[in-house]
Design a protein around this nucleic acid. Sequence first.
RNA 1: GGGAGUUUAGCUCAGCUGGUUCAGAGCAUCUGCCUUACAAGCAGAGGGUCACUGGUUCGAACCCAGUAACUCCCA
Length: 885
Amino acid sequence: MSISKTYLPQETEEKWYSYWLKHDFFKSVPDEREPYTVVIPPPNVTGVLHMGHMLNNTIQDVLVRRARMKGKNACWVPGTDHASIATEAKVVAMLKERGISKKDLTREEFLAYAWEWKEKYGGIILDQLKKLGASCDWDRTRFTLEDDLSEAVIDTFIHLYKKGLIYRGVRMVNWDPQGKTAVSDEEVIRKEVNQKLYYIRYKVVSSESEVSSPDYLTIATTRPETIMADAAICINPNDERYFYLHGKKVLIPLINREIPVILDEYVTMDFGTGCLKVTPAHDLNDYELGQKHNLPVIDILNDDGTLNEKAQILVGEDRFAARKKIAALLEADGYLDKIEDYKSQIGFSERTDAVIEPKLSMQWFCKMTEMAQPALDYVLKGEIKLIPDKFTNTYRYWMENVKDWCISRQLWWGQRIPAWYLPNGQFVIAKSKEEAFEEAKTKSHGISIDELVQEEDVVDTWFSAWLWPISVFDGFKDPNNADINYYYPTNDLVTAPEILFFWVARMIMAGHEFRGEAPFKNVYLTGIVRDKLGRKMSKSLGNSPDPLALIEKFGADGVRVGMLLCSPAGNDLMFDESYCEQGRNFANKIWNAFKLVKGWEVDEKLESANAVAIEWFESRFNQALTEIEGNFTQFRLSEALMSTYKLVWDDFCAWYLEMVKPAYQQDVEKQAIDSETYSATVRFFENILKILHPFMPFITEELWHDDLFGARQELDCCIVAQLPKGGQINTRLLDEVEIVKQIITQVRNIRNAKQISPKEKLGLSVKANSQVDYKGYELIITKLANTNALDFVSDKLAQAAGFMVSTDEFYVPLEEKIDPVEECARLQKEKDYLTGFLKAVNSKLGNERFMANAKPEIIEVELKKKADAEAKLNIIEEGLTALAC
RNA sequence: GGGAGUUUAGCUCAGCUGGUUCAGAGCAUCUGCCUUACAAGCAGAGGGUCACUGGUUCGAACCCAGUAACUCCCA
């Protein structure tokens, strides 16, 4: 291995990913080990990798790799989602470019194009994940629209229908006039929009005798184009202004249709004019009001959002064009009172961005209440943990107020609903036309199979996604197969909080319904990746970096570290390239530490001089191991990474390696080192590679195979190495080394302040008052602070820069005179601080209520504080006296 | 309109049961260094009214009430 000056990711990533694949390290088959299972949240099959995926999959890969290195049988199942609306929209757009309209195609022809599209673009996102280092078992790659998974969808549909949980009904749905399909509430994005409020006069129909009251009323609406669908005008029965309207009828302007005035307290008296036009076909609240008052439903819109013949006027116009035109018509005929600006929330389709139209239509629904209860219980009882747990509240609220799920979509790209209609309008639910025919015969004698017509609609994409943790293991086709029995329930699910409800919650329902068991144990909810300014990264804003370009620039390891550094659990993360830069720099640091060790040559004749340093790092490593383990248990991944980062950079590189590295020898190619230090360092390095591997798989695998670590068997790889087990932690040693570090820092400080070169050796005298045996640390101190051997003294040194660490006094003799005034000031400052500190401690200890209420260990701490401060203060006093300040 | 969350250094965040030597990291900043692993680096330093106001407590970044700003969810 040639050692370049910096780490070059491009040269290693491809090599090792292929190597891992070739040796089936990602592959999992059931065995006697404990399984660790993760199913990927399947990305859209036609999508490309964005920063959200990067974060999500980095986290999954870290968890999976760590589990693998803990001896578990790790299985990460990849796959893609057919994403019916999004994909169909893309296919329609592609066809349009080729001059083909969906309208002119049969279902089969369209699907052929769609599959062609899928084959062409379907694998892209998975290939991108490989660049990131994702250790998925690619042999298990599934697709939500493949035959087996589709069959599972149909079977569950039939199962739920038979159980009475699926029904067909007329409902007000969110209609996307551009996609020409119903979309779920979750796929509607509400945005505040500037609108106009039109005040329109309706003529009151009156008998000739009454002329005392105004002969019209005024309503306010944002949707004048729907007046032709009005079924009534509603007023609040308590509204004194309108008592005269009770029992009256009015005429709809322009078309002069007569509609009644109805009374309902639903109407807010102080909004608009207090008169509400009731349009049951085009507004959810109006629909409910209409049901209550038995009003007719007049739907004046076509599926594409144009007006139909029921509107009588402006037939064929788009709803927005019609709005403008009707305003002009009303104006011309004197029906338009005024127009005001008005802000309100409007729903937009998540997929097509079209304004959602509330529309009554016949749809298929899945009842939720019954399934929601057990799904809620899993979370409330803690059998499924949401991380962070603040989401538990939101989850509960949603599950307690769950609405039936509209599962039909007016699309072709998806699983077609297994309903067959008879000529008489009845339908049967069956897996195949033949089975449907058998059942149809019992309903309608003499029917022929050709008369059966299958439902045109497909099911909502989530109706296949909710089965994912079961269907990827063929749990429907073969409910007792070895895989499902072994891997299910899975362990951790890593996903975005945005889909907690329409995916996670429903998977829990499906898990309970079809397996009687929750589908996973932990749900780790990542934040949304935002840019530095806090804006969500999106294609339209153009603020999302290209993930592959980032990998190109900083290396996959660097990007993985970068993603994790800024990703506290559940909080959004403000992504910035500089995090990846930090990741890259870290990789480079590891690389260079390796270069240092690589440059050593064992000299058997040398005595080991580093026993203390070795024992210290061993303890420090074991301590960090415990911290890291704790962080992982709590899913604090960025903290686990930070602990690892500091262990490697600070403790290993900045302290340990500096302590043990051979002093510079001129004209020597390889630095000589004793065998004990060498083997300990190599062992430490190997352990460091192990704990780094889940975060930085490529560089660690690369270094793992260097002959520094001896000859490796073909299958002896870092990816399957077992994480080091914790060992002894010598806390006294750890504490004392902290003191030693302070001494070194203080000496370096003096150097800095006095502008003395690091190359110049200094003297160092110790007046030890504590129990610390500095003799044992002498080598470390003299080496890192570049001083002569310690001079143990019993008196203060004049003509020296002094400092205190704990209660011990240190002096660095200097040639230049120490300014006694300056020295006095330094001591005085320290004395002032300690006096104040001591005062606070004493007042605490003198407080009866503190002594009565505080826990004994707290009091003990305070007593120790007091003793330490007093001891230190004494020494300072002595110093002050000696200087005669 | 209802609900949830957030607010700690220039930035991103820790701070776990209210109690260790005046609140901690990382990055950024400043100063000095191209010191034979690393300038993608080394050594050192500075930086805080813990959003605000009150309360509880011997003791509050932490508990309670209110206020403000921001974010998200639901209508």
